[in-house]
Amino acid sequence: MNPLAIIGRTLIALTREAGAMSLFAWRGVSAALSPPWYWSQLGAQFLRIGYFSLPVVGLTAVFTGAALALNIYTGGARFNAEQFVPNIVVLGITRELGPVLASLMLAGRVSAAMAAEIGAMRVTEQIDALETLSTDPFRFLVGPRILAAVITVPMLVLVADIIGVLGGWAVSTQILDFNGATYIRNTVDFVTRWDVVSGLIKAATFGFIIALMGCYHGYRSKRGAQGVGRATTNAVVSAAILIFAANYVLTTLFV
């Protein structure tokens, strides 16, 4: 086959997918931001995305912070800069690892669950049924998920920031010879408001990506169990890749 034709076809397919996704995002966002709101749906999503993700996010953060402290200590020791462990741990966690790793875990947990649930609703005609009951699926399903994710993922990341720093602190005081109080003081003196806030802006963006990918792929799920399975995989993979890409773009804006 003509290679130009293959490239052309791929480009067209990509453009079409991007267009469909943008349209979907637009409908989802306008549903999230205008009445009527389905409060019970929103509440359920807050609980599911926010509360039930706490253990996953917390465990990810504590181990990341601990490993980060050890690595920075090793690296710092090569030019006698071990004392900077608290500073670099808090910078790395708040600006980068907290938002990115927590969101990646949430892509696995939340995007997958959304795609599977909405996909199953699609193939069992529950989404059609919603429409026949005068209820816009974008308002009932997509809007609350996007809204809940954009609000709760930053909250989760804030928790991850704190736990991550504590993970670094624990390793530094227990294994390395840091004084606990000094470590905390160095951390607090060093970290700026913008370090934290820029990480939370990242988190809100990633939350949007997580919910959008879960809903989009679930909504367009093909018929049958295989269709739902593929939708779930696509949701997780595309959410993860978009998180990495968005992280790079946001980082270039924030440095």
Partner: peptide, 12 residues
Amino acid sequence: FGMLFQGGALFD
């Protein structure tokens, strides 16, 4: 409208 779907389509 009122519609009964072939598969029921109840919200689980």
